[in-house]
Design a protein around this nucleic acid. Structure first.
Length: 309
DNA sequence: GATAGAATAT
DNA sequence: TATATTCTAT
């Protein structure tokens, strides 16, 4: 119906999003930047795969230097009732040296195991990132807002479906609470403080709280197949498309290999030593655009700069 | 088989 | 606690 709106919202949406320069790092920080770029690893939806194996092989050698990696003692105590699950034990992974093949090496000689041995740092949901998340959910509509779709719409490089799923789970919980407390007041548990602030940083579309009632939501305006078109167009419109190492360059025409492609914005965030997990709430004029902090030996990846609009 | 969602672990 | 990982249902 209103193509205008369609165009507008998306345009507006894009404009509101942080510019590429500010957009940040959230990528395979455990992999050497060069390698990551060189092989375009990250997680291609379905395009480059063979590169991964290569990366794996090489990466082992190159990794050692630039990555401090505090080894995580893994856990391993899984209560799997079924032997099947138990059989699948990743085991403690340490790239540093250990020399062990890593339990994952069992696969008959393929030679590509590193990909799965790499552990991503914990993702920190900054207000910006969360906003993007909410926008995506809002635009998709609650019905279509599932992890995979959300992830695609957000098009944040390095963001995984699991990341989104986890956050979505929490977000839903938050929405539920809000619904339940409609009118009540204020009892926020100490635990919610941080969460609330985060979630408060992004407006919660009214229909989120009242499913089944479209009301005057222009959000639901285009909940049809137009989505795909819009997304593709938007993606195409995003200037941020260059890939440092062009294996397969993007056709000038604007033809994409995948239906929903993800714009590559973001660079590589790197982890450093340990720091406090306390980050500035809001309005933090941190000069750093990207920061990765680790706490207690845990690495943390901060996607966007802390500080909302 | 893939993915969503909930449960659980860290 | 926040996020990750695992488990189960679809």
């Amino acid at each position: 119906m209103r193509e205008d709106d369609a165009g507008n919202w998306f345009t507006k949406w894009q404009v509101e999003l942080p510019p590429p320069e500010e957009l940040t790092p959230l990528t395979q920080s455990l992999i050497t930047p060069d390698l990551a770029l060189a092989f375009d690893i990250g997680r291609g939806p379905s395009s480059s795969n063979n590169s991964i194996s290569l990366v794996g092989a090489k990466q082992r050698h190159l990794l050692p230097s630039p990555t401090p990696l505090p080894q995580q003692l893994s856990s391993s105590s899984r209560d799997s009732k079924t032997g099947a699950a138990a059989a699948r034990q990743p085991g403690p992974v340490d790239f540093a040296d250990s020399g062990d093949l890593g339990s994952g090496g069992g696969a008959g000689g393929g030679g590509d195991e590193p990909a799965r041995t790499l552990k991503r740092p914990r993702l920190v949901w900054t207000p910006q990132l969360h906003k993007r998340f909410v926008d995506a959910v809002a635009h998709l509509g609650i019905k279509n807002a599932v992890p995979k779709t959300i992830m695609q719409l957000m098009s944040v490089d390095g963001l995984t479906r699991e990341n989104v799923a986890s956050h979505l789970q929490k977000y839903r919980l938050y929405l539920r609470r809000m619904q339940g407390l409609s009118g009540g007041g204020g009892g926020s548990s100490s635990a919610d403080a941080a969460t609330e602030r985060l979630f408060a940083s992004a407006p919660v579309p009214s229909h989120f709280l009242h499913p089944g009632r479209p009301s005057s939501d222009h959000f639901l305006a285009l909940q049809h197949h137009q989505h795909l078109a819009a997304e593709a167009a938007a993606a195409a419109a995003i200037p941020q498309y260059r890939r440092q190492v062009g294996h397969f360059g993007l056709p000038p025409n604007g033809q994409f290999e995948h239906p929903l492609l993800q714009s590559r914005q973001g660079q590589i965030a790197h982890s450093m030593g340990a720091a406090m997990s306390m980050h500035n709430p809001i309005q933090s004029s941190v000069g750093e655009s990207d920061s990765v902090k680790g706490s207690g030996g845990r690495k943390v990846l901060t996607l966007f700069p802390t500080g909302d609009d």
